[in-house]
Amino acid sequence: MRHTVLVSLVVVVLMVAPYAPQCEAQVWESLAAAAAEKIVGLWKQGEVELLGHYCSYSVTPKIKRWQLYYKGRLWCPGWTHIRGEAETRSHSGVAGRTTKDFVEKAFKAGLITEEETRAWLNR
């Protein structure tokens, strides 16, 4: 288990523990399961089609200055060694910024045309 997951889980449990009834174990178990599900949901991995190529992406959480940030990475094995990367506080916005970074780098490297770049960035 990663260090940040363990720390996050302990913090959530300590914050919620005073509100859980002592005699009802089922409530405590369902509360712990819900907290664990939320924490595990912070990580994300998958594939996406980008400009006709299959690419992989990952999103990982990190704590920075006591705030939750998300780091996104996008790479396209078999096409290029370029990696798109971004870091933001938005779990849903990190994917867009990561893709934008990848497309800009691909354009600068001459892998895609200016029209393809504009079409993708203006979505």
Results as ranks from 00 to 15, higher is better:
Leu31Val: 13
Leu31Cys: 05
Ala32Glu: 04
Ala32Arg: 09
Ala32Asp: 01
Ala32Trp: 04
Ala33Val: 07
Ala35Ser: 15
Ala36Ile: 12
Ala36Thr: 07
Glu37Thr: 09
Lys38His: 01
Val40Lys: 15
Val40Cys: 07
Gly41Pro: 00
Leu42Ile: 10
Leu42Tyr: 13
Leu42His: 12
Trp43Gly: 05
Lys44Ser: 13
Lys44Leu: 14
Lys44Ile: 06
Gln45Arg: 05
Gln45Ile: 11
Gly46Asp: 07
Val48Ala: 04
Val48Thr: 11
Val48Gly: 00
Leu51Asn: 02
Leu51Met: 10
Gly52His: 03
His53Asn: 12
His53Arg: 15
His53Ser: 06
His53Leu: 01
Tyr54Glu: 05
Tyr57Asp: 07
Val59Leu: 06
Pro61Cys: 08
Lys62Cys: 12
Lys62Asn: 07
Lys62Thr: 08
Ile63Gly: 09
Lys64Ile: 15
Arg65Leu: 11
Trp66Tyr: 14
Trp66Ser: 14
Gln67Glu: 15
Leu68Gly: 08
Tyr69Leu: 11
Tyr69Phe: 14
Tyr69Lys: 10
Tyr69Ser: 09
Tyr70Asn: 00
Tyr70Val: 08
Lys71Glu: 14
Lys71Phe: 10
Arg73Lys: 09
Leu74Asp: 00
Trp75Gln: 07
Trp75Glu: 10
Trp75Lys: 12
Cys76Ile: 04
Gly78Ile: 01
Trp79Pro: 06
Trp79Gly: 00
Thr80Asp: 05
Thr80Lys: 08
His81Cys: 06
His81Pro: 06
His81Asn: 14
Ile82Ser: 01
Ile82His: 03
Ile82Thr: 02
Ile82Gly: 03
Arg83Ser: 10
Arg83Met: 09
Gly84Tyr: 00
Glu85Arg: 10
Glu87Ile: 10
Thr88Trp: 10
Arg89Gly: 11
Ser90Ile: 09
His91Thr: 02
Ser92His: 10
Ser92Thr: 10
Gly93Asp: 05
Gly93Arg: 09
Gly93Phe: 05
Gly96Val: 04
Gly96Phe: 08
Thr98Ser: 04
Thr99Glu: 13
Thr99Ser: 14
Thr99Trp: 02
Asp101Gln: 08
Glu104Leu: 15
Phe107Val: 00
Phe107Lys: 03
Phe107Thr: 00
Lys108Asn: 08
Ala109Tyr: 03
Ala109Trp: 04
Leu111Ser: 05
Leu111Phe: 07
Leu111Cys: 02
Ile112Glu: 01
Thr113Gly: 11
Thr113Asp: 01
Thr113Tyr: 07
Glu115Thr: 07
Glu115Lys: 13
Glu115Cys: 04
